[in-house]
């Protein structure tokens, strides 16, 4: 297999023979760049897209069909729109979460081939597609 050596030259090395370098001074600049880049991206996003403030909540008013949904809820809303049952939706979400946490127990093969990794990555890709669809097509909070 091919790995990239620290100075950018490609060199061949067997698995388990990764070259290691002291953190200081080899990785300090890279870490500094990552920190500054992240801070800069967040600062620019904050300056360009300031957060607006919606109207104050009124528990007595009826929900507006155009009410914005919290983005992290959108996959759950899409799942709800497919099943039409809050009970089934919450049980499915719990099962997905349990499968996610217990993944090391489900895949104990120890194989590290690319073919195996691709096979295991298929459920993850399906999840990403589902997430993308939910962000694109899901609308407001269901009534």
């Amino acid at each position: 297999m091919t790995t990239r050596s620290f100075k950018g030259r490609r060199k061949h090395a067997r698995r388990g023979e990764q070259k290691e370098y002291p953190f200081y001074p080899n990785f300090v600049l890279r870490i500094f760049m990552a920190i500054m880049g992240t801070v800069a991206v967040i600062a620019v996003l904050s300056a360009l897209f300031p957060l607006s403030l919606d109207q104050i909540a009124d528990p007595l008013a009826a929900p507006d069909p155009g009410t914005r949904t919290l983005w992290i809820l959108k996959p759950a809303i899409l799942l709800y729109n497919i099943t039409f049952s809050p009970g089934i939706t919450v049980v499915l979400i719990t099962i997905f979460a349990a499968l996610f946490v217990l993944l090391p127990l489900l895949d104990r093969s120890g194989q590290r081939s690319i073919k195996r990794r691709i096979l295991v990555a298929i459920p993850f890709l399906l999840w990403m597609i589902f997430l993308a669809l939910s962000l694109l097509f899901s609308t407001g909070v269901p009534g």
Binding site: A57, R68, T69, G140
Partner: peptide
């Protein structure tokens, strides 16, 4: 405590 946040919290 905005309107949208309220209905999101009610739903989830």
């Amino acid at each position: 405590w905005t309107r949208s946040a309220y209905w999101s919290a009610v739903w989830w």
